[in-house]
Structure formats: structure tokens, C-alpha cells
Computed example of a mutant assay.
Amino acid sequence: MRRLRNDLPYTFRPPKLENWLRPLGLAINRAVHLKRKYRIAKIEAKGFEKVRELNEAGHSVMLAPNHSDHSDPHVVMEIASRHGMRPLFMAAREIFEVSPIASWALQGMGVFSVDRDGPDLSAIKTAITLLEKAADPLVIFPEGEIYHHHRRLDPLNEGVASILLKAAARLPAGKNAYLVPVGLRFFHDTEVEATFSDRLSKLEDRIGWTPKPRMPIDDRIHRLGTGVLALKETEYLGQAGSGTVQDRLTRLCEELLTLAEGRYPRDAKAVTPPERVRALRFRIRRRLLDGEKPPTPAERELLLDDLDRVFTALQAHSYIGDYLLEDPTLDRRAETILKLEEDLYGFPTYPIDRTARVIAGEPICVSEMLVSGVLPAKGGALPLTELLEMRLDGLLSSAS
């Protein structure tokens, strides 16, 4: 999870698919992103033949994968291309702000931006239009954020279901809208275990501790995680907390969100921590960019500090206290260390080859559910999101 401490005005970037760019983009994706950057040595896929059949028949297809790793969109793009499809992606605005060249390349490959913190009508309209055209599958990650725990989902954003329902209502006779859950799991080569001790030593040194290479790996991970949590509690709350790790994570998240919400109008519809974070970021950035009444230097600094607070709240929420202790497998150890590296260094490391296992679940025919009355025309986003969450949970459990 990457820090979002900026006050840049948002500019919508639409998709500008360039056919000549696609072969080059796919080659770079394989050689640079998958092989070198994310160390994806092998991709195993199931269920995409059905997706291709629906796409070739002219139906609207939305792929909704879980989002647990930075390589997720690169893996989905590669799998889709192997099956003769050209997927379009909705992606966070921040990746377009890296550089003009990055923005141009992303748009040329069919990626368009979305501001996750506000009502981005341009992104919503674009997604609906693309689904209406039904030329290519549309990929949207309903979790929104990357949490690095591959076996558990975070609450899904209802916006994905809402977009598909609106598109389904506009399709002509004979064309259906399908929602396809996609389960993504990553498995590490056993050689990754040999990297744990040195990487943990560097992380311990990062927070000023003396490395403990002779301590059992699970104890070191738990000790390090607890130490980082105590540092964050002390930074924001004045002292380290007590109780179980999960209780402390929940308390830190809640207190930071409550503190920030005391300075801005509360969004009554925002209930879960990710929803509350998005609502707060929207209000904070809107104030930072107020051209009619710009914030004073002191207020601006407080606003930026509040962005840090809500970021830390989301970080706390993203950790599951018993994730490693519940099932201390090789992959869960690797995931937890990688997550700690990203939070302490600002970026993760991928030292050893991995295998991506991707399963496209049974397509959900949203059009038929609407016609039969299983899904109501209004208010259908919630039950459809719950169905998607149940299907994704099943896929993640089966991809072992």
C-alpha cells in the first residue's frame, strides 16, 4: 500500500487504444513487468475459454478479480491476451500521475483512470459505455486497494456491481451482461525461505533494532510487526497500546479515523474503514484544492497530516492479526514479509520466482437475473456484490 500524500488536481484519462502499440506493450509486460519486476515465472489459468466464448458472441463481460498483489493487472492482461482478448482496465488515478509517458502508454493499452475517493462520473460513464459496446472484456478490481493477503478478501466496493447493472439495462435484445469472478493466488518457489532471515534483518535494522538471525522466523515476523505497530501507536496516539494485535490494529484504525472525521463533514454512507478513508480523502483533497478560498499554510499542513492519518488507518485495517499465526505456510510468511517491506521501504521486493494461479469462475449472467427478478432493477448492487464476494471466496479457497 502506497502513501497518497498529494494535492494534485484530478484529470480524467480516457482509454485511447492503439492497435500498433499492443504487441509492444504485451512484450514489455512479459519481459519487464512479469518476468523481471514481479518475478512471475509461470502462470496457470483455468476457466478463460468460457470468457472468450462470451466475448466472441458479443456479450458484455466484466472481469472482477481479487487484488492482493501489484502484479495482478499484468497477470490478467497476459492471460486474456493468450485467449485472444484485449482487456480494458479501470485503474487508480495515481498510476497515471507517475509521468506523461506512463499515462500515454497506459491509455494506449486501453487503461482509463478513476478517482477512487470521489464520484468520478467520467470513469463510471466510460465503463458503462465500454460494456455497452461489448467489444472487449472490462477489468475492475472490486477491492480497490492492494492488501497482500491472498487468502482473504476485503469488503468489495458496490460500484463494480452498480456499473454492470446499469450497462445490462441498456443492452439490446440477444446481448447479455456477465460478471466473472476471477481468483488470483501467488505461490513462491521454496527457495524464498532462504531469503527470509536477511530480509528480516534489514527490516529490523530499518527501525533501529539489532537483527536477531537466530530467532525462529515466525517469532521474528510477529516481533517485528508488533514493534512497527507500537511505533505507529506512539507516533499518533502517544503510547503503545495493549491487548491482542488485532485489537490494537482495530483501535488504531478507529481512533485515527474518528480524529480526522471530527474536522470534516461525516459521510453517513461510509461505514467500513476503506469507505471512510475514501470519503475523508475526498473531503481533504477538495479543501486542499479550493481555489476560491485557499487554505492557509498552517491549515494546509494540517490537511496533509490528516492524509497521513487516514493512510495509516488504512494500513492498520489492511493487516490481519492472526493471518500468519492461523496458518504459517511458506506463502503466508513471504506475503507478510513483503507487506512489511512495502510499508517500511515504500516498495515491496520480489527476490524469488513465483507462480500465479488464476481461475475464472462461473460467469454470472446479470441480465437473466434482472429479467427473472432475482436481482431488482433498483437496489440490486448489494446482493450482486454479496454474490460476487461469495464466489471469489470460493475461488481463493480452491486455488491451492
Rank of each mutant, 00 (worst) to 15 (best):
V139C: 01
L130H: 04
P142K: 01
Y147D: 07
L131D: 01
A135M: 12
A134V: 10
G118S: 15
L131R: 05
I128D: 03
L131K: 03
K125W: 01
L138T: 00
K125R: 15
T129L: 04
P119R: 10
I140K: 00
L121P: 11
S122T: 15
I128V: 13
A135P: 05
K133H: 10
V139P: 00
I124Q: 11
T126Y: 09
Y147M: 08
I146K: 03
F141R: 05
L138N: 00
T126H: 03
E132G: 12
E143N: 12
I146C: 10
L121R: 15
P137R: 04
D120L: 10
K133A: 09
A123V: 07
P119D: 02
F141W: 06
T129A: 09
I124L: 13
P119E: 04
S122M: 15
E143F: 13
E132F: 08
E143M: 08
T129F: 04
A134G: 10
I146E: 00
G118P: 08
V139T: 07
E132Q: 14
D117C: 11
P142L: 06
I146N: 02
T129R: 12
P119H: 10
L131A: 04
G118D: 09
L131S: 03
L131P: 02
E143V: 09
L138Y: 03
L138V: 05
A123Y: 05
I128A: 07
K133M: 08
I124V: 15
T126P: 03
V139M: 00
I146V: 14
E145H: 13
I140A: 02
I128N: 03
E132M: 04
I140E: 00
T126Q: 05
F141P: 07
K125E: 01
K125T: 11
P119V: 01
S122N: 15
E143K: 10
D136L: 07
L130K: 02
A135Y: 10
G118C: 11
K133L: 11
S122H: 15
L121M: 15
Y147C: 05
T129M: 02
I146S: 01
E145W: 12
I124N: 07
L121D: 13
D117E: 14
G144M: 06
I146Q: 02
P137D: 05
I124M: 14
I124Y: 11
L130T: 05
I128F: 06
K133W: 02
I146G: 02
E145L: 08
P119G: 09
A135E: 12
A127V: 07
D117H: 14
E143A: 14
G144K: 09
I128M: 03
V139R: 01
P137L: 02
R116K: 13
I140T: 08
A127W: 04
P119K: 10
P142W: 06
V139E: 00
S122R: 13
A127T: 09
